[in-house]
Design a protein around this nucleic acid. Structure first.
Ligand SMILES: [Mn+2]
Ligand SMILES: [Mn+2]
Ligand SMILES: [Zn+2]
Ligand SMILES: [Zn+2]
Lengths: 145, 145
DNA sequence: AGGATTAAGCAACTCAGTTGCGTAAAGGTC
DNA sequence: GACCTTTACGCAACTGAGTTGCTTAATCCT
């Protein structure tokens, strides 16, 4: 049986969605594929542009809902950039705690998947810690001279 | 010479602004005093409410500009909450690197001044690190049962 | 006092993200 | 396959934080 023109990540995208026990709609597949093939976290409008560039235009609100849905399903996750814009990322592997790198020049956000800094913290009384995130700032490979 | 009805932080607020070599306007003093007397970081509207509660109402845009100005002067600093809203904080002491604690229940943000977690990070090639921030999530004293 | 500089006030705007609601597209049942 | 139920999409209108431009009012300086 011949493989369709969609190879690699395509199959994975469908699987990831079906494993969530939900409908693999065109919008969800398109968005997840875009996220999976990106090397950095994408904004709503990054995804919108990527989709329409590929001929799959997705309605604004649908896109917002799909992105949020992917996060709820645990298939993607989001981070807030310093420009107050959410950026989304999907991983082939299970998502573990990791740091995010914000480029101060181009604004791109990268997930540093293998980077899970550990540190000891002692909070003042009556604070209950649930989670700790590390956010890094600097220049990304695109913006290094 | 009798002390005016403004004690403690009032004097400090004036000093802090004058040391920046700028005009100590009513709006700046009011805002800085409010920030100095808060035990957590305040949003624009937190400050607006606090000011008008004290009878000093400040125009929306002026408030935005004053807050930004205080940050530029190094007198205050701001952090982005998970609700995409900036929160401002002023310190009597010089501002050093510190972690921020976000309450997942009430949304308040606290500066953990004495908490400066250190950790080792090795970035992928061509990433140039400039700064690292730690953001903590959990329940604050107000929200702990 | 008089002119230059800086801040405040106001209105209109931007932009990411939401909400409500009607319509279309699956899924499931017989 | 027709029929009904559930879920997703599409569109329009809305929200709310933060900005911009421009005019008026305070300060500062000589
Ligand atoms: Mn990530
Ligand atoms: Mn702080
Ligand atoms: Zn960059
Ligand atoms: Zn709280």
């Amino acid at each position: 049986m011949a493989m369709s023109e969609e190879s690699g990540s395509a199959k994975t995208a469908i699987k990831m969605i079906q494993e969530a026990g939900a409908r693999a709609t065109a919008a969800r597949l398109t968005v997840l594929r875009i996220l999976l093939s990106a090397d950095h976290a994408l904004t709503h409008s990054d995804v919108e542009q990527a989709a329409s560039a590929a001929g799959d235009l997705i309605e604004r609100v649908t896109l917002y809902r799909v992105l949020e849905w992917l996060v709820d399903q645990g298939v993607a996750h989001k981070t807030l950039g310093l420009d107050r814009v959410w950026r989304f990322n999907a991983h082939h592997e299970a998502i573990s705690n990791h740091a995010h790198f914000n480029c101060t020049d181009c604004g791109r956000v990268y997930c540093m998947e293998s980077l899970n800094p550990v540190f000891a913290i002692t909070l003042p009384p009556h604070f209950q810690l649930q989670q700790a995130d590390v956010s890094l700032q600097g220049l990304c490979p695109c913006c290094t001279d």
